[in-house]
Simulated scan of single mutants.
Amino acid sequence: MQRLSSQTFHSIREQLLLTARPLERAIFCYEFEDGKEETVLEALQTYQNDDGGFGNGLEPDFQLPDSSPMATSVAMQHLIRYADHPLAQNMIKRAISYLESTFDEERRGWFAVPPQVNEYPHAFWWTVRDNGQSWIDDNWGNPSAELIGYLHLFEHEVQNLHVPKLIDQALTHFLQLESFDAHETYCYLRLLAMVPNQRTDKVEKQLTKAVQSVVKLDRENWEKYVPFPLKFIATPEGNHFGLPAFKVEDNLDFFVEKLEEQSCISPTWAWTDYLATWEKAKKEWTGILTLGTLLSLRTFNRLDTEQ
């Protein structure tokens, strides 16, 4: 079992504080130093629009300044960690209002991004096609299943939608799936973390089937953009979905080695257009991915931070 050395950790720290976005810098300081929740929330607040939704490149692969359900889902992943803070509560209330206003009755959920995304630099997979949908929308649960989870957590802020019915609908959809998309599976994992009483044996069996069908277990794949084991296993005590323990350990070793070599985790994908903007987005993603990897390594006791 390999652990990230304290020397490398402090080298990564210097790079993050120098090159990452204010949001990732604030999260790093909160998680590893004496940073304050308020600093994180103030950084996140800069991405929230007057309509309560989030945009402004919070998800760096599309630079749309307008709000989108997808960017709002990214914001909510952060906000639930600070939900007791008054600033977070106000941001959440406004975000829930936005989600209600953009709920599509015919879809019984949300489209990931609005057509205006095409007017700003973005990765090709976010392009909204003539049918009014991006490629992301081919899988209903991304982000609709996850967003329904946030409506459940903050149901006291919901005015017009019937949340229990939406949860039933989301789970029915999931249980009927015969093939699986990795990103949709991530969204269902987040939903089920928010509604743990819905994790029946039938649901767990389907989750296991989904994870095993999309995960890539071999090292040679992890240099590519693939769903690796740590994408599904959040804690040592969590459900491993039948994945071999030694593969999880190897995945951890892989990221320790990568950070020891490079002191960062860079994106394993690239844009095909807007290449100047991609260089900026790539730098932002490097901060996001590096910070996320550090947090995972800490969770699995693979991190030495003391010099």
Rank of each mutant, 00 (worst) to 15 (best):
S97Y: 08
I136T: 11
L295C: 11
L17F: 09
E249V: 08
D66I: 07
V256A: 04
A95Y: 01
A123M: 07
L297H: 02
H85Q: 11
M76W: 02
A193C: 10
V128W: 00
T127H: 10
Y30R: 10
E157I: 02
N160M: 13
Q2A: 10
V117N: 00
H85M: 11
S97E: 11
P115V: 09
A71I: 06
P121N: 08
Q169M: 12
F254N: 05
Q15S: 14
G35I: 05
F246K: 14
F111R: 01
V248D: 02
Q15V: 11
W126S: 04
T290Q: 05
Q169N: 13
N49I: 05
W126D: 03
R25W: 04
V40E: 00
E279V: 10
R25Q: 15
T277M: 10
Q159H: 13
T8N: 10
G149V: 02
H152E: 12
F180G: 01
S68P: 09
Q212L: 13
A245L: 15
A71T: 10
V256S: 03
R199I: 12
R219H: 08
M194Q: 11
K280A: 08
N251K: 05
K280T: 12
K258H: 14
L230K: 00
Y120W: 14
H156I: 06
Q262A: 13
I27C: 05
S6F: 10
V215P: 01
F228Q: 04
N160V: 13
Q169R: 14
Q198H: 15
K258S: 12
F111C: 04
V163H: 05
L243Y: 04
F111K: 01
T268K: 14
Y150D: 03
R25D: 02
L41T: 02
L297M: 08
V215F: 03
K93L: 10
E249R: 10
E14N: 13
G149M: 03
F28L: 10
V211A: 07
L171M: 13
A276K: 15
M1H: 15
D66R: 07
A234E: 10
S73Y: 02
W135S: 15
Q212V: 05
E249Q: 15
Q133F: 06
K224C: 12
Q212W: 09
D34F: 11
A182Q: 03
R3S: 13
R107K: 15
C264Q: 06
